[in-house]
């Protein structure tokens, strides 16, 4: 038991040191990278490791006769959660969201320290001690609090009231509701019934089951399925169209959406809203192919107002590409990310 707890304590100390190092810029902040798509899992397991570490630490301190009072355990743990959220997570969480997490973790800590009568007594004892100020030390502490609290609260309200020039927060709908139909190059496409004319099997019939077998494999790297190389001279039908779509993508789209379709192209850093990340399960993976067709053909300027048409630099691709080229690019995007387009049924 003791050995186990020591290991836990060691992990806790190491993790804390790393976090502190990252905050002060001693340890490079990319030492343990948050990998896109795996981030929630990573964060949860990291927190679990920390909790285990703290349990070990507290056990060890206890067995060495240096029990950390329940009050400080609670306060420190809450402070840790705040620090972790502020410094570990990237891109940074806005303050309002962090405040919400702060309240939730406060409630959690409160429930933990007040789980039973004895714990609750232990928790509030230090507070009462300071209030009563029976010893010289507590008296000094009380005086300090009495002076510091008004100053801190007054200062905090001054900081919040001082006019600041923060960016106004504007929330945009990323996937607005599509129209029932869209007219591209003189032809009307009903979104519910249209199909990608290039998602076909070797007989030339629309066949999603066939194309699903040939897309790249999910998992790290997302590599092409074995024996399904679109660059093979003998590649025919679907795979040949994928290559043609890829050529169009890398002549037009990668400048913003990136070489790995993750929204990190050459020009992406300059634009706001940032280009869509197709490898994120929240974009094309949960949309129908015809929705993408509408978005590609009509571009940013074709968005309804909730999508901020004035700010998006997404071109209305009907100005640059033929309808066939648009369908092929869409085919390529699903192939390269390894996602299936959502169907209407």
């Amino acid at each position: 038991m003791k050995a186990l707890m020591s290991v836990g304590a060691l992990i806790g100390v190491l993790g804390l040191l790393m976090l502190i190092g990252m905050i002060f810029g001693v340890v490079p902040s990319n030492t343990v990278r948050l990998v896109e798509g795996y981030m929630p899992m990573q964060v949860l397991s990291e927190l679990a490791i920390f909790v285990a570490g703290f349990a070990g630490l507290s056990y060890l301190a206890n067995s060495m006769g240096m029990t950390i009072p329940r009050f400080w355990q609670g306060v420190l743990f809450w402070a840790f959660i705040q620090t972790y959220l502020k410094f570990r997570i990237y891109p940074p969480i806005p303050f309002s969201v962090r405040a919400m997490y702060g309240v939730v973790s406060f409630v959690a800590v409160f429930m933990w320290v007040s789980a039973n009568e004895e714990d609750w007594k232990k928790f509030r004892q230090p507070i009462l001690n300071v209030l009563d100020a029976n010893t010289g030390f507590h008296k000094a502490l009380r005086t300090m609090y009495l002076i510091l609290l008004p100053i801190l609260i007054g200062g905090f309200s001054f900081m919040t009231m001082k006019p600041s020039v923060d960016e106004p927060i504007e929330l945009r709908t990323v996937h607005p509701a599509p129209p029932a139909s869209t007219k591209v190059h003189g032809k009307t496409y009903t979104l519910q019934t249209s199909q990608n004319p290039y998602r076909v099997n070797l007989e030339g019939k629309y066949d999603q089951a066939y194309s699903n077998k040939l897309i790249v494999e999910q998992g790290m790297g997302r590599l092409m399925a074995p024996n399904a190389n679109p660059w093979d001279d003998k590649a025919e039908g679907y795979l040949k169209y994928v290559r043609e779509g890829g050529e169009i993508f890398f002549q037009n789209c990668h400048f913003c959406h990136g070489d790995n379709l993750n929204g990190r192209g050459l020009h992406a850093f300059a634009f706001n809203p940032i280009p869509a990340n197709f490898t994120d399960p929240g974009t094309i993976a949960q949309l129908q192919e015809t929705f993408i067709f509408w978005r590609v053909a009509k571009g940013g300027i074709g968005l309804p107002n909730e999508g901020f048409p004035w700010a998006s630099v997404m071109p209305p691709w009907e100005q640059h590409l033929t309808t066939d080229e648009i369908w092929k690019v869409i085919l390529f995007e699903y192939w390269h990310t390894g996602y299936y387009p959502r169907t209407w049924d």
Binding site: L149, P150, S157, F158, M161, P163, P168, F271, A311, V313
Partner: peptide, 27 residues
């Protein structure tokens, strides 16, 4: 992209008064 420009106003007086009132309240 879209940026915002803002002519920063001089700091109004309330910004100094209210926090003082709040501090006294805490006392």
């Amino acid at each position: 992209a879209f940026y915002y420009t803002i002519l920063q106003p001089p700091i109004p007086q309330e910004v100094y008064i209210y926090p003082a009132v709040i501090a006294v309240g805490v006392v």
